[in-house]
């Protein structure tokens, strides 16, 4: 049995090789109507092309802002939920998890209703006499950031919750009984001990934000291109397999880089 157990891996591996590894490598290094090395050359000239660099920076910048805000908003929520004895915790947790099941298209569509020219927010602002005419809120980086926070905040809350729940609550009580203030306990006990979980959460949010398509497509303007919308442009709208390969390579490297950084930080944390 044990020697033949490896055979159970074969069907899955075949599917992964045929449907993922070979097509991905072929697209990056031997794309259609483009010789080997051309994608790498295009990838190299990426860095001297102001237009492509502006797309890369917008993608990274939006990813960082969304990640930062998701952690800053999500961690305190997770902390309150993990340390509260209230019987409503289950309901609040369910309310944070449920959006994860719901289609991104449906969730993002909500912002068209809220931020649109006839939207709720614009009319509230006008009713309060804060603005004169309906503000242009859609088709902006602001709308993309808001939409991405909506998509990824649940991940930040759930990952942080699991991390905090694993920190023994008696450690909080020990710090408190030794005279630490609740604020001090939070920063000196809870945050450091749940940091590995927060790093995992931040990695998931960043990787999700820099590869998301629905949000920049629906909420961004034509000048708010991100790597994902640009990859679609080169594969569907204005077909250029060399550039498509270069953008795909950039996106993949970005995700791999942050994942490796995160696992390296995790290992460093464990050895200390």
């Amino acid at each position: 049995m044990r020697s033949r157990a490896g055979l159970l891996l074969v069907p899955g591996l075949i599917i992964l090789v045929v449907g993922l590894i070979v097509p991905a490598i072929s697209m990056l290094f031997f794309p259609r109507r483009s010789g080997p090395g051309e994608v790498l050359a295009a990838f190299g000239s990426f860095f001297s092309d102001p237009f492509m660099m502006s797309i890369l920076w917008r993608t990274v910048w939006i990813g960082l802002v969304v990640t930062g805000l998701c952690v800053v908003i999500g961690f305190p929520i997770a902390y309150m939920l993990a340390r509260s004895g209230s019987r409503w915790v289950g309901m609040w947790l369910a309310l944070a998890i449920f959006p994860l099941l719901l289609s991104n298209v449906v969730r993002t569509f909500g912002w068209l209703v809220v931020l649109g020219s006839q939207g709720v927010l614009g009319r509230v602002l006008m009713a309060l006499h804060l603005v004169e005419k309906p503000p242009q809120l859609l088709a902006s980086e602001f709308a993309i950031v808001l939409g991405l926070i909506q998509l990824f905040l649940p991940l930040a809350i759930i990952s942080s919750y699991s991390a905090i729940a694993q920190v023994d609550a008696t450690l909080d009580e020990a710090a408190r009984s030794l005279g630490a203030s609740p604020t001090r306990t939070f920063w000196s006990v809870v945050v450091p001990l749940s940091l590995p979980g927060v790093i995992v959460a931040a990695t998931l949010v960043f990787a999700g934000s820099v590869t998301a398509y629905t949000t920049p497509f629906l909420l961004g303007g034509s000048s708010d291109k991100m790597l994902s919308t640009q990859l679609f442009y080169y594969t569907d709208t204005n077909v250029d397999w060399t550039m498509a390969g270069a953008v795909a390579l950039m996106m993949t490297i970005l995700v791999f880089a942050v994942a490796s950084l995160s696992s390296a930080t995790g290992r460093l944390g464990r050895t200390q």
Binding site: G19, P23, M27, T211
Partner: peptide, 12 residues
């Protein structure tokens, strides 16, 4: 691997 990249690879 970004899903959009996988989709583009399968397409192409």
């Amino acid at each position: 691997i970004p899903e959009l990249v996988l989709g583009a690879a399968l397409y192409q």
